[in-house]
Design a protein around this nucleic acid. Structure first.
Lengths: 251, 251
DNA sequence: TTCTATCATTGAACAGTGTTCGCCAGCAAG
DNA sequence: CTTGCTGGCGAACACTGTTCAATGATAGAA
């Protein structure tokens, strides 16, 4: 497109321009890890996780597949770099015992927001354990907030598990429904939701009374509302472990 | 091996044994969905999720790959059947408001137990949304317990999300650590845990004071203890939504 | 018993995948 | 201008899931 091959209507470059052109051709931006990750994101958004192949990434860059392996150990490393770049610049504020709950919620909200930035990103996120040096600062900050808030150490340690598995799992479920919507003929989310609700409403009342009764609550609520509510459930549970008198949420 | 081709030392079967032999050969158990799923489990346990291929399953059955497709739509269906069979017979007791929390915990414990029965099973579990008819009864039973306990409907709807994403996520993390252990030279879990703890202890104290301080709590605790604690966090959060006076956890 | 029709099973093929290796063109240094 | 070198290239390997024409053995009919 922007780099047409000679021979299909394009006149060959005049000889006196050979010198500058010679610079132009090799002056194509050199392949770097950053450019590879960037291209991988483009492919991921367009083709989804299953369509994210090294060949597609190479094609996106207009480069041979084998060229990628000079800068990257393999596909695993590409996925890891994508995962790490997604949370770059994601920093938590210094612990404030007065509203630690809101701080934790903000962390989860921001995490979800970033995961939703790219299609199928939750799939990639879940296959990585966040103990690479760049991601450890998040764990550290979260633990700081928990401890300053007065949570016992064991609870603080477990809280990270609950929060991160929930965050990944929730977004993953969201993207699975979105994928299902893509596969079906439903164009809009509303249409898809109506289809699902119809399926649940059509279930035999006597065998699934509660599902039928809650079909509205299960899917009519927006994902944001369900996410917020679930966050609140988790944080209420955590708060219940703060010893009375220890940094009470007075304010 | 057990079925040597004629011509390399094996004498051909005498003609008078042809009749019984003819029965023996076709008397091989016929291919069924059940046998395919069973073989898939064997391959999964031996090779892990990445080694679970249709060809391996076919080889396990001593059958051509293409033969599988006469009984199964494809690999996706095999994974779905495996997932559904894992939870076969997993039934919840009738709702008892007096100890609904223990009922919910038992559900999660049994779910984790089954997921741990087969290597990488959590990976398979997470890619499925439990809305197939066979699995809907679980959702139904859980909702029943939540509602009878007095949880508001919106909370009951969200509670299922929190619980299932946590269950899958926690076991998935467990199996990821186990996979990492397998890859490393560490044989036992204790050895692996020591390695991890050593890594955390070696972190710079000034940058990661909380991680260093909690390195013991993060990994010395057994997975069971962490799972139980996390369950308790979630259930305390849920319980906080029961309106006062509505089926109080007296006893 | 002999023939036939049926259907489960097969082998080969196709279009992909991640990864490796030998080669070659173009650049910087001498 | 020549030399050395290295980044990118093409081709290949060993896989993957899936399809399809052909085949083999079986059960039923004559």
């Amino acid at each position: 497109m922007s780099d047409p091959a000679p021979g299909d209507g394009a006149v060959p470059p005049p000889p006196w321009e050979r010198s500058p052109r010679r610079r132009a051709s090799p002056a194509r931006v050199p392949l770097t890890r950053e450019r590879i990750v960037e291209a991988a994101y483009v492919v991921l958004d367009r083709e989804g996780y299953d369509g994210l192949s090294m060949r597609q990434v190479a094609a996106e860059l207009g480069v041979a597949v084998s060229g990628l392996y000079a800068h990257v150990a393999g596909k695993d490393e590409v996925l890891r770099l994508m995962y790490e770049r997604l949370f770059e610049g994601h920093e938590l504020p210094p612990p404030d015992p007065a509203n630690w709950q809101e701080q934790v919620k903000d962390f989860a909200r921001e995490g979800r927001r970033r995961l939703l930035l790219h299609r199928d990103m939750a799939k990639i996120s879940m296959t990585h354990v966040p103990f690479t040096p760049e991601l450890l600062v998040h764990v550290e900050s979260l633990l700081a907030i928990f401890r300053v808030a007065g949570l016992p150490d064991t609870v603080a340690a477990a809280a990270g598990d609950v929060l991160s598995t929930f965050m990944d799992g929730f977004v993953h479920e969201e993207s699975m429904w979105d994928e299902r919507r893509r596969d079906s003929k439903a164009e809009t989310w509303e249409e898809m939701r109506a289809t699902i609700k119809g399926y649940f409403d059509a279930l035999p009342h006597e065998r699934f009374p509660n599902i039928v009764a809650l079909s509205g609550k299960l899917f009519d609520e927006s994902n944001d509302a369900r996410f917020e509510l679930a966050l609140d459930i988790i944080l209420r549970g955590l708060a219940s472990y703060i010893p009375p008198g220890d940094a009470p949420p007075s304010r």
